[in-house]
Design a binder for these strands. Structure first.
Lengths: 344, 344
DNA sequence: TTTAGCACTCAACTAACTAGAGTGCTAACG
DNA sequence: CGTTAGCACTCTAGTTAGTTGAGTGCTAAA
C-alpha cells in the first residue's frame, strides 16, 4: 500500500505530466505548492514508486512519467472529476432540440459536442438495431420487379431493404403477406424475426402463397440481417495535436482504429457497463499495439436499459479528471433527454 | 510549344518522379531506354523546361521535379491510361451482386474497391437527394404525439423524418392529408415539394384541416430540408504511406478535408462533368493550401443522367496513368450496372 | 527521517567536416 | 550547329566531436 506522501507525489507527477507531456523531475514535484518535501526526499520516493511499478523513466537523467499502473492508480484513487459548469450542460440540452428528427442525428451531435469540449476524439455508438422491436412493416413497389421494404422499429428507426420480387407473385398476394407479417410480428425484436417466421408462421404462410420457394426467397430478402449500426466519430484530427501522435506509426494505428472497419472499438463500447464511467488505459483496451491510447466510456440508457455508449479516445496521458467529469454529466443527461424524447 | 525531345524528357521525369518520389537527375533520364541523349543534352533541355515552367528544382544540385504545370502537360498529352485486366473488371461487377439492397451500399463498396485498387484515398458521392422524385409518402404513428414520416423516392431511397403531431389533430385527418399529398405530389422532385404545396395545394388543404397553423407546422416538419447526402471515403490511412504526407501539417489538412464537415471536396465532386475523367492538380482543386494534392474525378450516370461521382485523392505525384484508366472503367461500368439494377 | 551537496549520466543541441549527387559552363567533336 | 565529354562548383544529408543542462543516485550532515 502507498503512504500518503507517495500518493501525493504520484498525484503531482500525473497532473504535471498530463499537462506538460514532459517527464517530471524531482525538483518540479517538490516545488508544487501542495507538496512540502525537498527534491531529495521526492527522489527517494520516486525510486520506490518506480520499483513498485507506478512510474517509469524514459532514460536515466530524465524525469519520471506515470506507468500504465500509475495512471490506473491515479484514476481510481487520486483524481477528483471536474465539475462542469452551466454552459456545457446547456449545450447538452440543446442537442435534443426541435431540429432533432431522428436518434441518429442526436447521436452525431453528441459525438461532435464531446470532441469539442474535450479536444480529444470521440466515438459514439447508437442502439443496436437488432434489439429494436418491430413496429411496422411496409412494402412499396418500385418497378415491376423490385420494391422497397421498410421496417419501422419501436425507437422510430427506419430500415430500408430493397427486394427483388419473385417472378409470378402478384402484388396483392404480397400485400396480404405483408399484412399478415405485420399482425403477427409486432413487438418482436429484429434479431428474432426470421426465427419466429420459421417457427410459428411457416404453416400459415403456405396458405397465402402457392410457391413456397419464392416466398422464402422474398422473406429472406426482407428480413436479411440488418446493417450493423454505424459508429460516429468526431475530432479525429484533434489527435494530431497530441505530441504522442507525432509518430506516424502510432497515428496510423489510431486512424485504422477509427476507420470503422476495425471492430475493436465497437466491441469495447458495447461492453461498457450500464452505469458509471469506465476508463480503459493502454493495453487494458486489449487493442494490439495501443499502449499509448486510453479510452473512456459510458453508456446511455432509455427507460433504464442501456442502448448505446459514448467514448473519448485519447493518449494515455489524457486529462482524465476533465473527461470523466464530462462523460458522467453527458451520459446521464442524454439518457434523460432520450426518455423525454420518446415519451412525447 | 514543346519539341518531341522535350516532351520525351518531361515524360521520363514525370514517370520517374512518380515512382521514386525523388528529384530526377539528368543522368537517370539519359539512361532510360526510351531516351537516347546524353546527360548533358538532357541538362540543357531541363534548364529550358524549367524556364518554361514545367519543372522545378528543390535546390541547386538537386534533380528536377515536375511543377504543377508539368503534371498538367503530362496528364493532358503524355500519359497513356493503364488498361485494366479482367480481374478488376470482375471485382466491379461483383459490386452489384445480390447482397446489394440499396444504392448507398453499392456506393460504399465502390469506394472501398477504388481505394484498394489504387492505394490512394477514395471519395464517392451518391445521388443528390434533392433531385430524387417523390414516389410515396407514408406516415407511421409512433407514440401519441409523434410519428415517423417516410419519403420513398424513385431511386428507391428511403428518407425518414420524425415529426411531432400537432395537438388536437386526429389521426384520420392526418391520414387523409397524407393521401392527398401522395396523389398530388407524385413525381415532384424533393427540392420542390414544399414550393408546390404552397403554390398549388394551399387552398385544397384548408378544406381538410380546420386549423391552418397546425397543418403548416406539420408540413414543415415533414418536408423539412432533407439531410445532405453523405460522402463515402475509404483508405484514409493509405495517405500516410505517401512520403509527402510525412509532414504533420499536410496530413492534418488532408484529414480535415475528409472529415465531412468540409464541403470543398463535395463541391468538387458535384462539379465533375457528366462524362470522362477529370484531373485536378494541386491548386486547381481550389482548396486552400492543397498544392500537394491531386484529385481525379468521374461521374456515374443513371439513364445517361449524372447522379453521382467517384474521386481518388492523392499527392500531386500520383500514378495518373493507373488511376485514370481505372476510373474510366469503373465509372462507366457502374453506370451500366446501376441502370440494370433499376430496370430489374 | 529529512535534506544539502556532489559526482555522474545521458539526451539534445551545435559546429565542423565529408561524401555524393547534380548542376552549369566551356570546349571539343562530328 | 547541335551534341557531348569534362570539370569546377554548389548544396544537402549524414557523421563525428564537443558542449550544455536537466536530472538522478548516493553519501554525509542536520
Amino acid at each position: 500500500m502507498l503512504t500518503e506522501r507517495q500518493k501525493r507525489i504520484l498525484w503531482a507527477i500525473c497532473e504535471d505530466y498530463i499537462e506538460s507531456a514532459e517527464p517530471v523531475g524531482s525538483r518540479s514535484v517538490s516545488k508544487k505548492n501542495d507538496v512540502g518535501f525537498s527534491a531529495a526526499t521526492v527522489r527517494n520516493e520516486m525510486a520506490d514508486l518506480e520499483e513498485m511499478g507506478f512510474l517509469e523513466q524514459p532514460h536515466t537523467s530524465a524525469g519520471r512519467i506515470p506507468s500504465q499502473q500509475g495512471y490506473r492508480f491515479y484514476v481510481d484513487h487520486l483524481l477528483t472529476p471536474q465539475i462542469w459548469g452551466d454552459d456545457e450542460i446547456h449545450a447538452i440540452h440543446n442537442l435534443f432540440q426541435k431540429d432533432t428528427t431522428h436518434i441518429e442525428q442526436a447521436i452525431e451531435h453528441t459525438s461532435e459536442l464531446l470532441s469539442q469540449l474535450t479536444n480529444y476524439t470521440s466515438v459514439v455508438i447508437g442502439p443496436k438495431l437488432q434489439d429494436h422491436r418491430l413496429r411496422h412493416l411496409q412494402m412499396i413497389p418500385l418497378t415491376e420487379h423490385s420494391a422497397v421494404f421498410i421496417i419501422v422499429t419501436d425507437l422510430g428507426h427506419v430500415n430500408q431493404q430493397r427486394v427483388l420480387l419473385p417472378e409470378g407473385m402478384s402484388i396483392s398476394v404480397m400485400e396480404r403477406l405483408v399484412n399478415l407479417l405485420n399482425r403477427r410480428l409486432q413487438g418482436i425484436s429484429l434479431s428474432k424475426l426470421r426465427l419466429v417466421v420459421e417457427r410459428d408462421l411457416a404453416d400459415e404462410l403456405t396458405r397465402y402463397v402457392a410457391e413456397y420457394g419464392s416466398m422464402i426467397f422474398l422473406l429472406d430478402q426482407m428480413l436479411a440481417p440488418q446493417q450493423e449500426n454505424r459508429i460516429y466519430t468526431s475530432g479525429t484530427t484533434k489527435m494530431l495535436d497530441q505530441p504522442e501522435f507525432r509518430d506516424l506509426h502510432k497515428m496510423k494505428l489510431l486512424l485504422d482504429l477509427l476507420d470503422g472497419k476495425n471492430q475493436s472499438i465497437i466491441q469495447l463500447l458495447n461492453s461498457s457497463p450500464s452505469s458509471g464511467v469506465q476508463v480503459k488505459i493502454g493495453n487494458e483496451t486489449s487493442i494490439e499495439g495501443a499502449n499509448h491510447i486510453s479510452l473512456i466510456i459510458a453508456s446511455f440508457t432509455l427507460d433504464s436499459e442501456s442502448i448505446g455508449a459514448i467514448g473519448v479516445l485519447g493518449p494515455t496521458r489524457m486529462e482524465y479528471a476533465k473527461v470523466i467529469g464530462l462523460m458522467d454529466v453527458i451520459s446521464k443527461d442524454i439518457s434523460k433527454r432520450l426518455t423525454e424524447f420518446y415519451e412525447k
